[in-house]
Amino acid sequence: MIPDVSRGNGIRPLLAYLYGPGRREEHEDPHLVAAWDLHGAPDPGRHPRASVGRLADRLDQHAQLRAAELGAMPPNRVWHCSVRAAPEDPILGDEQWAQVARRVVRATGLEPEEGPGCRWVAVRHAVHHIHLAAVTVLPSGARPGMHRDAMRAQAECRAIEAEWGLRRVGIGERTSTSYPTSAEIIKAERHGWSEPSRVWLQRQMHLALSEAADPNGYFAALAERGVIVRVRRGEDNVAAGYSLARPGDVGAGGQIVHFAAGRLDSAMTLPRVLHHLSTKKSAEGIRS
């Protein structure tokens, strides 16, 4: 069970993504499984009169009150954490995922041991994972103590694995990030893009691979789709890996933001792409 923590400044675009169709229409039946207060959290996936905007306003209420006092919204107030079970784990029910959500929230400090906590929700739109979305402002206007929150979330997930008999994740084991961060979602909205760069690049990778007959054809198909491709080569000048970037996606320093292929999609590393191409039928779906 692997938690992936990120931070940002916009709760509404994050919720819109979680309740949306997903990058390849893979989101199924988005709905709440837990919240700071299920009676006070309108669920757009279950109630026809609920909306993403209304839920975002409820989550952001304490931050809005604080902003009225200070003249600006608290920075980096949005906390996002996806929690994924291993594919071989048994399918957990909504109540089990609710228990996971509540334990992670307590472990990371979103809900202090004393006094009321932050507002948060847990959204499930797939079989093997949930997303926690929170605004890290307490009712008092103070910020919660969340030092080393990612490590604390992982420690709690390890405890759940041991108690529930789930697959134990090794200390050095890593997983690719399949979903955009809050900051990436906000950047896409600012640029007027229909989807974040991470999602756009994932889609271009799969489309290019479906058209290619060999590695050069794969990289050429990516370039034809407007993707900036950077190939890493070894001492023998043989390709050893690659990263991708979206035109116009720059970081704070003005440099193009590149994503390593394996971080975009663990199934699209160079060795796996080469293996796929070597076993692909030469007469089906191949570019001339």
Rank of each mutant, 00 (worst) to 15 (best):
P75G: 03
N76L: 13
R119L: 15
A67I: 13
A101I: 09
R66C: 12
H147G: 01
H131I: 15
R102C: 13
A155W: 09
P75M: 11
L92E: 12
L110D: 09
G109P: 01
I91W: 07
A107H: 12
S140N: 09
R158C: 10
R152A: 01
A134R: 02
A98N: 11
G117K: 00
V105D: 02
A122L: 11
V137R: 06
A126P: 08
P75L: 10
A122G: 07
L110A: 05
L59S: 03
E113Y: 00
R66V: 14
R66G: 04
H62P: 06
Q96A: 12
L110Y: 07
L132W: 05
M73G: 00
A153F: 10
V83S: 02
D94G: 04
V137P: 05
H125G: 04
G145R: 07
V78Q: 08
P112R: 03
L138F: 09
Q96I: 02
D60F: 09
Q61K: 09
R148D: 15
R119I: 15
R124L: 07
L70R: 04
T108E: 15
R84S: 11
V123W: 12
R152P: 01
E69R: 07
M73V: 06
D60A: 09
L132R: 05
C118A: 10
V83C: 10
G115K: 13
L70M: 05
R58S: 03
G145C: 06
H147F: 09
D149R: 00
D94K: 01
L132V: 03
E111Y: 02
E95A: 10
G145M: 13
R103S: 13
R124S: 05
A150C: 03
C118T: 11
P116W: 01
L132H: 05
A85K: 03
E156T: 02
Q64M: 12
A150R: 08
A126R: 14
S140D: 14
D60E: 15
W97I: 08
L65D: 06
A63Q: 01
A56M: 07
R124M: 08
G93N: 14
A86W: 06
W79T: 07
E111P: 00
G93Y: 12
V135H: 00
P74C: 08
H131P: 11
P116Q: 03
G109F: 03
L65G: 00
V135P: 00
R148Y: 07
R66A: 14
P116F: 01
D57Q: 09
C81Q: 01
A153S: 06
A126K: 11
V78T: 08
A126C: 12
G145Q: 12
V137H: 04
R124N: 05
Q64P: 01
T108K: 05
E88W: 12
Q64Y: 07
P90R: 08
C81E: 04
R143A: 15
R84Y: 13
V121G: 00
A133S: 11
C81H: 02
P144W: 13
E95L: 12
R77T: 07
H131V: 13
A63D: 07
H147N: 04
A122Q: 11
A150W: 10
H147D: 10
V83A: 09
